[in-house]
Design a protein around this nucleic acid. Sequence first.
DNA 1: AATCTTTATAACATGATATAACATCGATCG
DNA 2: CGATCGATGTTATATCATGTTATAAAGATT
Lengths: 140, 140
Amino acid sequence: MAMDGCDHEGPDGDDAPLGLTKNERRVWETMVGSGEPMKAYEILDALKGSGVRAPMTVYRALDGLEAKGLIHKLEGKNTYVICNHSRPHRLQVFLVCDECPTVTEIDVKGLDTLLSPFARDAGFKIETARLEVRGRCEGC
Amino acid sequence: MAMDGCDHEGPDGDDAPLGLTKNERRVWETMVGSGEPMKAYEILDALKGSGVRAPMTVYRALDGLEAKGLIHKLEGKNTYVICNHSRPHRLQVFLVCDECPTVTEIDVKGLDTLLSPFARDAGFKIETARLEVRGRCEGC
DNA sequence: AATCTTTATAACATGATATAACATCGATCG
DNA sequence: CGATCGATGTTATATCATGTTATAAAGATT
Ligand SMILES: [Zn+2]
Ligand SMILES: [Zn+2]
Ligand SMILES: [Zn+2]
Ligand SMILES: [Zn+2]
């Protein structure tokens, strides 16, 4: 049950990680506060009151957060989620519910081992991988 | 014409984005639910309740699904069928080159087997999955 | 042939998602 | 000081998907 093991937070609980820019921190806090995957323009709306007016601001922050391994993008739904791991990782696996907003990031041990030979056979050098599984979550 | 077999893997050049759009998904699910070849206007009727009103919507989705190799058109009868490679689960694996437009679809034997226990542990029922691997392709 | 039905597309408008291009500000360093 | 650099602000635009209306093209019926 590796469901809720986020270690990005400091000892104070909801404190943002260090080394973030002002906008990255604003976006990160918005996403943590939501608790659900968010769309870029949802984040923008949520930050309208804080003076953020342009999509660019949000997208730049999202880029930065992703580069720092703090969030992931779910391509299937164009949403962004907080990473629940303690360090950046190159393999990501998400269980995405089709019926509710629930997204769970899990670890699949052995995935890279399974994958590597197939990639090697194709002459492909793996940098990162993201597995998006869709279906019905426990509560649905 | 291929009857029950099909050759996926167009050479290249298709800049089709991975994943399904909302309408592609609706049409695909309708077709899977039916279990039989369907005509475009049958699909349209089936989706009337979901707010789909125009033939264009269905035809665009069919185009997309066909480009992604998920369905085939039976020219003789003007019907569309689910590709028999994509059931019961649809488990796609793409090798996406970061340096050129090359996208290769591969078959990773054992991925379903590896994945299932993890999903089961989380109480998650898998419908479909897509693994997107990023890196450098053979030619780059 | 003329007409009707079924099948498929054209053309244009709107919405949703993401980026380009350029200006500004503030800190740091020679 | 002035140069440089990263972050931010601002405006405009690109891209993709969808919605909407009308029409074309192919086949069947009369
Ligand atoms: Zn993560
Ligand atoms: Zn759910
Ligand atoms: Zn097929
Ligand atoms: Zn390449």
